[in-house]
Amino acid sequence: MFKTLLVSLLLLSFSRYGITAPLQIGVTLHPYYSYVTNIVGDKATVVPMIPEGFNPHAYEVRSEEIKRVGALDVVVLNGLGHDDFAERMIAASENPHIPIIEANENVPLLPASGNVAASRMGANAPSVGGKIVNAHTFLSITGSIQQVQTIARELGKLDPDNARYYRKNARDYARKLRKIRAEALSKLANHTRQNIQVATIHGAYDYMLREFGMEVTAVVEPAHGIEPSPSQLAKTIEDIRRLKVNVIFSEMNFPSPYVDTIQRETGVRLYALSHIISGAYTPKKFEIEMAKNFNTVVQAILEADTRTKTESTDHDQ
């Protein structure tokens, strides 16, 4: 009798309805690890669903990770195409009814871009049925803050005791992120973006460049993560010339011979941005890499503006 009572009390102490154990929150991508750790502080545990060193663009689910999913209380998803593997992992786990937080539910989404055909039609080119959206909302401060707000609200519903704490942390984190954007934009006070034609190698930066008041003219990506063939490279160079692009944003892990060839053939400088989907999962990763991205864009704008002014002075003379 005493034993049964003791076991029941122990079970109750670990139950969500008794003295609650900290929430185990699954995340799929590095930015979401940073968001959620900053929201929950020490009141919950954040568990990356895929190990470090795996590329989420081409991730194949493994049994040991599926096993870990069974212990989660909730999963935070990008949900727009960057972590489609997660639902399959959840369905195959011991706990297929884990609550899901759709982080992007309240984010105004942009259409997907990612091939030259779409970019020819402008950034608002209709995707298939208008339903395919750009999944890279995490590569912007505004998109990230909105996701942080949604995640904090939804976590508060699952863990009402800590709801206020989560919302306060979310606000503090949002202020920190906003400062990154404000500081970057303050460096551009007297520099116009009107003469800048931007191309990106991967269609991931539309949300971020919009925060600078810039639109992506072209996405010259042959295929993401795949080494381009010589004919694809030639086509990319031709498109950059034809669209009169004067700034290209590449990615840090793109093969350098490819980048060097584009730079040499077009004369347009490439600036490398971070996609924030590799390396160690840390709470500060997102803010550190986003600050670097913002500084890179600022540098690109300043240099392009200087070049334009020099060219117009030479032209006048």
Binding site: P108, P111, N124, V133, T142, Q146, Q149, R171, G213
Partner: peptide
């Protein structure tokens, strides 16, 4: 429609306004 009928500047403004709601409500 925010995605297809607003231009880039308007999309940016709309996103920023949505984010501001949390601070205003607080």
């Amino acid at each position: 429609d925010a995605r297809h009928q607003l231009n880039a500047a308007e999309q940016g403004l709309n996103a920023d306004l949505n984010v501001a709601v949390e601070e205003i409500q607080f």
